[in-house]
Amino acid sequence: MTAPARVDTLVGDRLVRFDRAERWLHWINATLVLVLIATGSIMYIGALSGLVGRRLLVRDLHVWSGLLLPIPFLAVVLGRWGRGFRSDCARLGRFLTDDWRWFRRRERRFGDLRVGKFNAGQKVNAILVAGALPVMFGTGLVLHWARSFPEGIRTGATFVHDWGYVALGLLVAGHIVKAMADPVALHAMRTGLAPARWAKATHPRWHDEVVGEPTADEPDEAVDHAEPGDHDHEGALDPAGGVASPTPYDGARSDQP
C-alpha cells in the first residue's frame, strides 16, 4: 500500500518508533517467551504441575517454542528487514554520559537529562534479556538432548536453566509492568508511531535527533497530537502526509553491519 516507514523519521506529528519488522519480531518473540514461561512454570512449580498435568504436552509445547525462538531474530537480521532492529540494537547497547547519570537521578523525566530513544532502564532490561535468551536456549538444548552430554554438564545446565528462569521471569515482569504504566509506549509497539510531544517529553534526545532541533531552548513546536488509536499505521503513512527526510545520522547508521 505505502512504502514501509523507516524508523526514526517524522510522519506528520508522529515519530516512527518501530518499523513493521521490529513490531512483528517483538510480538512473535513475546508470544514465544510467554508460552515458554507459562509451560516452564508448570513443569517447575510442583503445585502447578499437579493442577495442569499433561506432562508430555506441556513439555512438547515448551520445547517447540524454545526451538522456534531464534527464528524470528534470524529472519529479521539475515533478511532485508533488519534496518530498524539493528539500529535500535546499537542504541540499546551503548550507554551515553546521560545514561550513566540517569541511574543516579531520582527525577528522570523532567530534569536536565537528555534521554535518548531508550532510557537507561530500558537499555539494561534489553541487554540482560538479550544475554539471557541465548543462555536459556543453549542450556535448553542440553536438557532436551541430555543423553548426548555427560552427567556433570546436564546437572550444570539444569542449574543455569533454573536460575535463568527466575532471572528472565523478573526481567519480563518488569518490562510488562513498565509498558503497562506508559500507554503511549505500548501503543508505539502496536502501531509503530509515537506522538512528537510524548517523544519530546520523555525521549528528548531522540526527538531532537529525528525532528532536527539540536537544542531544547526553542518553543515547543510539537503539533497537537490526536488520541492514540484513532489512526492506524497505514493511515498515518498516507503519502500525502509525507515521510520526513532522513535524519542527519541516517548515513552513519546505514553503515552498520
Partner: peptide, 19 residues
Amino acid sequence: ARADREVEGRDGTPVGRRA
C-alpha cells in the same frame, strides 16, 4: 547536559556487547 554532542547508537560505552 545540553552541551553534549553524543549520538545514541554511535557514541558511549558499548555496555551491551560486554554484558
